[in-house]
Write a protein that binds this DNA or RNA. Structure first.
Lengths: 183, 183
DNA sequence: CCCATGTGAGACACGCATGTCTCACCGCAG
DNA sequence: CTGCGGTGAGACATGCGTGTCTCACATGGG
C-alpha cells in the first residue's frame, strides 16, 4: 500500500510535470487507478500537491547528499549536484512554477533547508576563491533553479537531449557564455 | 477607447504577473472597471491571455529593436537586451510559465521570430569569437529566458533589488560563476 | 465456503469561475 | 430637454473540477 502510494505519486509527478493543470481524473488514469482510489490515497488536489512537494524536497535532499557538496572543489560539487538533479528536474520545474503562487503562504520550511545548503556551497566556493564574489549566493541559487527548470522544459519539449542536460547547465552556470583564452 | 484597452491590458499584466490564477473579476477590479466592461474589451479569459501574449511579443520586439543587437560587440548587445527586458520581465515570466501549457498548440509564430533574433545574436557572438561554441544558441536563448524569469520572480519577492536585475543576469549569463584571473 | 478488504464505476451535489443578459445610471451631443 | 453610447451592478444559467457517496465485483484469508 505504501508502495502503491509512492508509485501513484511518481506517475502524478510525471504527468503534472508535462501538464500542470491536469485533472484529478487524468492523474488517476495516468496512475492506472480510479478516481475513487486516488482520493483514498490523497484527500484532495491540495493534499496531492503537498505530497508532491514533500517528495520533491525528499529527492532534493537525497541529491544534495549524493553530490557530497562539502567534498573537493566547489565547482565539481556543483557539477555533481546538477547531475543528481537531472532525474528529478521535471518535478522540480513543476514545483518551482507552482511555488510562485503561494506568495506569502507558509513556505514549506523544507525548501529553506535546501536553499541554505545550496547557498552554502556557493559561499564555500566564494570563500576559497573559486567563485566570484560579486554575485550573491542567493542569486546563484535562484539562477540554478531557473536553469534547471529551463533545462527540464527544453528536454521535455525535445529541444535538447537528456545527456546534454548536465553539461549545458553547469557550463553556463559556472563558465558563462564568454569564450576564454586559457584552459 | 483603444487607450482604455491598453491600460486595462497593462494592469492585467501587472496582476497576472503576481497571481497567474487571478479571476476575471480580480482583473476587472485591478483595472478599476467592472467585469462587464472587461468582457466588452476581451471576449473571455483566453482572449485576454492571447492579447497579453501579443503585447508581450510586441514589447519584446521593441526591446530587441532598442537593444540594437547588430551593433558593436555581441556581449554589449546582450547587456543592452537584458536592460531593455527588465521593465517587461514580469510579463515575460508570466507568459513563459503559461506557454509550458500550450504544449503542441500553435505556438504563436511571433515568439519564433523573437527566438530567432536572439539566437542570431548569440550565433553572431560565436562567429566573431566572443562566445564559446560548445553551447548552442538555442540553449543560450532558453537560458536567457529562464534567467530573466528567475530574476523577475526574485525581484517580485523582494529577494533582489530592481537595480541589480541587469547586472546579475548578464554577469552570470556571460561570465559565469567562476572567478577569473584576468580582467 | 464465506466474509472482509480493497477497488472500479458511476451517480450526485457543491463550489466556483465564466459567459450572457438585463436594467439603471451618467455624461454628452444634438 | 431628449436621445444615445458607454458603464456599473447584479441576476442568471452553464460548464467543469471536485468531494462524497453508494453499489457491485474481485481477491484472498479464515
Amino acid at each position: 500500500m505504501a508502495l502503491d502510494r509512492d508509485q501513484v505519486l511518481r506517475s502524478a509527478a510525471a504527468l503534472l510535470t508535462r501538464k500542470s493543470t491536469a485533472t484529478m481524473d487524468e492523474v488517476a488514469k495516468a496512475a492506472g487507478i480510479s478516481r475513487a482510489t486516488l482520493h483514498r490515497h490523497f484527500a484532495g488536489r491540495d493534499a496531492l500537491v503537498r505530497a508532491l512537494e514533500t517528495l520533491g524536497i525528499e529527492e532534493c535532499g537525497k541529491a544534495l547528499d549524493a553530490a557530497r557538496l562539502d567534498e573537493g572543489p566547489a565547482s565539481d560539487a556543483v557539477r555533481r549536484l546538477v547531475g543528481e538533479f537531472e532525474p528529478v528536474a521535471g518535478l522540480l520545474a513543476f514545483l518551482y512554477g507552482e511555488n510562485q503562487l503561494f506568495e506569502g503562504e507558509s513556505q514549506n520550511e523544507g525548501w529553506a533547508r535546501i536553499d541554505a545548503r545550496i547557498a552554502a556551497l556557493f559561499r564555500r566556493g566564494q570563500e576559497n576563491g573559486e567563485f566570484r564574489i560579486d554575485l550573491t549566493p542567493a542569486w546563484l541559487t535562484e539562477a540554478l533553479y531557473g536553469l534547471v527548470a529551463s533545462g527540464a522544459w527544453a528536454v521535455l519539449d525535445g529541444r535538447v537531449a537528456t545527456k546534454d542536460f548536465q553539461f549545458m547547465i553547469v557550463e553556463l552556470l559556472l563558465g558563462g557564455a564568454l569564450r576564454r583564452e586559457e584552459s
